[in-house]
């Protein structure tokens, strides 16, 4: 997994509440058996005026001029500013894959849906929860100032504004550790293989039917 330590990037808006994973990456693109290549279809239904098909070349599709991510000033953005309950709906990891593939490294919102939040960390993407008023303030500053960038310092747990003002954020220590070091959690869990085997032995004695094969 990609490590995340410090990141400075242009901020782009996704200014609506309850953005669901169907909106982040519509289902026709879930048919891929790969993890990459979802970027051109991120927010497909909002971004383009036509209906997207898997495997299509998106460079010739009609863009929705009203969608901010299509605006010149947000090209190359890597920090997404969003509203409450971002990433609700399905468990599809294609949502963080698409955000990542498009070039986003961090998402800031007042709240996230649980599964999406969790999936982000597995893909080197940092979801940051900030208070609603703070997020509102960031939206206003971003709209007011073209080229608005934020610096995210995971080690210090700070979002740094262009003027140097620091906004602290919370992050779970295990997730922070994994992200800072780009660690693969399967490898970490397998270090506890003996504990897992010991648990299985104890459990098998209590509830043997749990270990019977199906079919």
């Amino acid at each position: 997994m990609k490590a995340f330590t410090q990141h400075q990037g242009l901020v782009a808006p996704m200014d609506r509440a309850n953005v669901d994973t169907d909106l982040i990456i519509p289902k026709q693109f879930l048919k891929s058996i790969k993890r990459t290549g979802f970027g051109p279809n991120l927010f497909d239904e909002l971004r383009y005026l036509d209906e997207g098909m898997p495997g299509q070349d998106c460079s010739n599709r009609p863009l929705n001029p009203e969608f901010p991510l299509n605006h010149e000033r947000y090209q190359g953005a890597s920090v997404l500013l969003a509203r409450e309950n971002f990433g609700c709906g399905s468990s599809r990891e294609h949502a963080p894959w698409a955000l990542d593939d498009h070039g986003f490294r961090a998402i800031i919102a007042p709240s996230f849906a649980d599964i999406f939040f969790n999936n982000c960390f597995k893909n080197g993407l940092l979801p940051i929860v900030l208070a609603e008023e703070v997020v509102e303030q960031l939206f206003q500053e971003m709209y007011a100032q073209e080229g608005y960038t934020l610096t995210i310092d995971l080690e210090q747990q700070h979002v740094v504004k262009p003027g140097g003002e620091r906004i602290p954020f919370e992050v779970d220590s295990f997730r922070k550790h994994c992200l800072l070091n780009g660690l693969d959690d399967i490898g970490l869990t397998l270090e506890d293989a003996d504990d897992i085997r010991a648990y299985e032995e104890k459990r098998r004695a209590q509830a043997p039917w749990l270990f019977d094969a199906v079919k």
Binding site: R35, S90, S91, R92, E93, I115, N118, K122, I186, T189
Partner: peptide, 9 residues
């Protein structure tokens, strides 16, 4: 429900 990385995990 879990994501695909967790399916692998």
């Amino acid at each position: 429900g879990i994501g695909t990385s967790e399916v692998e995990h």
